[in-house]
Design a protein around this nucleic acid. Sequence first.
DNA 1: TATATTTGCAAGTGACTACTCACTTTTTAT
DNA 2: ATAAAAAGTGAGTAGTCACTTGCAAATATA
Lengths: 173, 173
Amino acid sequence: MTEKQEKILQSALQLFAREGYHATSTSKVAKAANVSEGLIFRHFKNKEGLMHAILDEGERRFKSLFADIVLETDPKEVIRKTITITNKIDKKEYDFWKLQFKLKWELEIDADKKMDPLKMALTNAFSKLSYEFPEREAQLLLLFIDGLSTAVLKGSELNDREMVGFLLKKYDL
Amino acid sequence: MTEKQEKILQSALQLFAREGYHATSTSKVAKAANVSEGLIFRHFKNKEGLMHAILDEGERRFKSLFADIVLETDPKEVIRKTITITNKIDKKEYDFWKLQFKLKWELEIDADKKMDPLKMALTNAFSKLSYEFPEREAQLLLLFIDGLSTAVLKGSELNDREMVGFLLKKYDL
DNA sequence: TATATTTGCAAGTGACTACTCACTTTTTAT
DNA sequence: ATAAAAAGTGAGTAGTCACTTGCAAATATA
């Protein structure tokens, strides 16, 4: 991975996240990266390839974000770590995560499957804690996390730390 | 509103919802509506104007969806109606609502304000029911609703009726 | 050092973009 | 019936789109 290659990825990420995939032209990316437009196609074949390179990185970060939770054995910890997952996202990485959420709509990507391991871990945790409907509890919590993440990434005014704290209390953690 | 005008709006709605605003060209819309491309600009000034016409209709439907809830005096009914709000969306209207959610991202529209009246009604309801933190309860419920709506509109496999029922039980309704 | 490979650039390409304009047809008002 | 206004068309426009090509510079391999 050359220096210019990384610069292209970084510029594309920022532009795709802030203005959208279709609204961002390859020439814009090239200018932002201070690179000839042709270089984008040399390295990433086409615009879609460029986006895929970014998406693959997303997959990796998703997994590493979940890894810590999925390996946890204490059920209460599983739930606590899930609820506080938004706290782990650095503000510097907002563009990156924003893009992941944006692309779910723009490219009709099925994000459900990415969450499956987390859902299983949660279902298991609720089960261990003798909740009556562990799977629905897991689903419910995931919906909340999705809603909260969306709100935060869209720059909503809601106080996410406060909401996280509130939820923790609700789940008796 | 002439027949062709409505046809344009309807075609644009469908294409914007399914393929995205930026990915849909005015010529595509014209073809789908069986209309000369120039007519779009005669009636809606430009592509953005076309989108705004659709968005305004969204505003109206949002309000009418909330009206029933906001006027409700019984606090339990306010919460129940909020939770079951997704049931009120006809499958035939999916394209329409999908577009509203999509555009929140694509055009960076602040959707929070649209929800404000509903949030107030909910806060009030939880307050009447002596919940300790009515505002946070309201916020939490809205996050659920947003997450649930998103999942349904994105064609997730989750059983929304089941989740709605589950939530109703949680709130003792 | 010689050569093969990769990295990079500038100037293209045709197709498509949002939008305009001159014009005709249809509707409305008098 | 006539004039004015509104609705509709289709062939343009300049500019931008994703992408290609030919060639030079840098780097790796021998």
